[in-house]
Design a protein around this nucleic acid. Structure first.
Lengths: 213, 213
DNA sequence: CTGTGTGAATTTTTTCACAGCG
DNA sequence: CGCTGTGAAAAAATTCACACAG
């Protein structure tokens, strides 16, 4: 199966609403319920669910629990897909805080920082290791995903080391485009780019709003 | 003029490379230079520059300084487009830190938090105000952009207040889709969504990598 | 009626491919 | 040549619109 990245992003968003509704005791939803929440068309929601092979009923819509299960099969983090954080500066620690509080299901195995002050400390339940331990941790702890939260000028070096150590995916906060070989995937989250987009849009010089990415 | 959001994102990225090259004394670049850096095709770069009406020369490519100026006209923050940060928690403070250090050109006028412990403190050169001051600050200090870094359950309330006070654009870190009236633009940056995308991509279940969004 | 599932149409985005220039 | 600028083609994403079901 082959699901476009865009669809994955929307599924992730749908899931939030479904979880909320489930916790409120709601058992069925219509495509327009999800569409309204996300500001998209019902047709798009149906198309997305078609893409993942989930079907509803014209009479009752989609089953909340069943759809959550289906999306979970695709998106749930797996225990053997460990995460490592590189760079425990302000942003890195904010990430650890956020993940520990909001997403305990993510297996963040370790943080790495070259500040001796931080090494050995446990930050939000995650131990901070020295820079040189990076390779060992990835190999020993089933880490497949790296979160890069280091300054721009060391981001590519870090990425190269992660790739050599066998990482599969990178979430990059540094304001550079990481160059990785085929088979390794990066998602760049550049805050300055997003701010510039908002500033431009806010000036009313473009036509539409957009999400994530 | 009407420039798609996607193009804005790429222009922002091009600018980083152009600045670096300018500081290295380079005066001309070819579309393939930018394309290589961003992992896209030269045709796309040329198309983007065509969109913003910038032309180069077949012999020498594009003028680094001139192109930077053109992109700056579109993207540079303006002094009367103030920014306000709502929520000076860990993520909000990481943002202030990042902006103060990397983007001093952004006029962050104030932070807002309802923690009395924070109110009155100056964080990275930015004063933290009480929750109730939100409306006054927006009206008095030419604030047009809001950065929402509050918990999910208060994000929509905050957004509503910002909209009523006349905000034009929102950068939202809360894991909810903000509902705003036409004319106000939001850019959602949901870290959990990005992580889920990376995890999915890293599993090798999709075909391509993608940036920002 | 009010929904879903989906082929077809449309719109948007990206790439191709080539004329024209120094 | 090797590049830009750009129509035209292709690909991708989104929306339309309608058969069918309860």
């Amino acid at each position: 199966m082959d699901i476009p990245n865009r669809v994955i992003g929307r599924l992730s968003a749908y899931r939030r609403h479904l979880r909320r509704w489930l916790s409120e005791g709601r058992e069925q939803v219509y495509s327009h319920d999800l569409a309204t929440q996300e500001g998209i068309t019902p047709a798009q929601v149906r198309r997305d669910l078609m893409t993942i092979g989930y079907t509803g009923s014209p009479a009752r819509g989609y089953d909340v629990h069943g759809l959550l299960t289906r999306i979970g099969e695709l998106l749930d983090p797996r225990p053997d897909e460990g995460i490592i954080l590189i760079g425990a500066g302000r942003l890195g620690r904010a990430m650890l805080d956020y993940l520990a509080a909001q997403h305990p299901e993510y297996p963040v195995r370790a943080a790495i920082d070259n500040d001796p002050e931080l090494v050995g400390r446990v930050i939000h339940g995650c131990r901070c290791h020295a820079d040189g331990d990076l390779e060992d941790i990835i190999r020993d702890e089933q880490v497949t995903i790296g979160i890069v939260a280091v300054p721009a000028d060391s981001a590519q070096d870090v990425a190269d080391r992660l790739v050599r150590a066998g990482i599969r995916g990178l979430l990059n906060f540094a304001p550079v485009r990481l160059r990785v070989p085929a088979g390794v995937y990066t998602q760049d989250l550049d805050i300055a780019v997003s701010l510039e987009k908002v500033a431009f849009l806010a000036r009313g010089q473009a036509k539409a709003q957009e999400t994530h990415e």
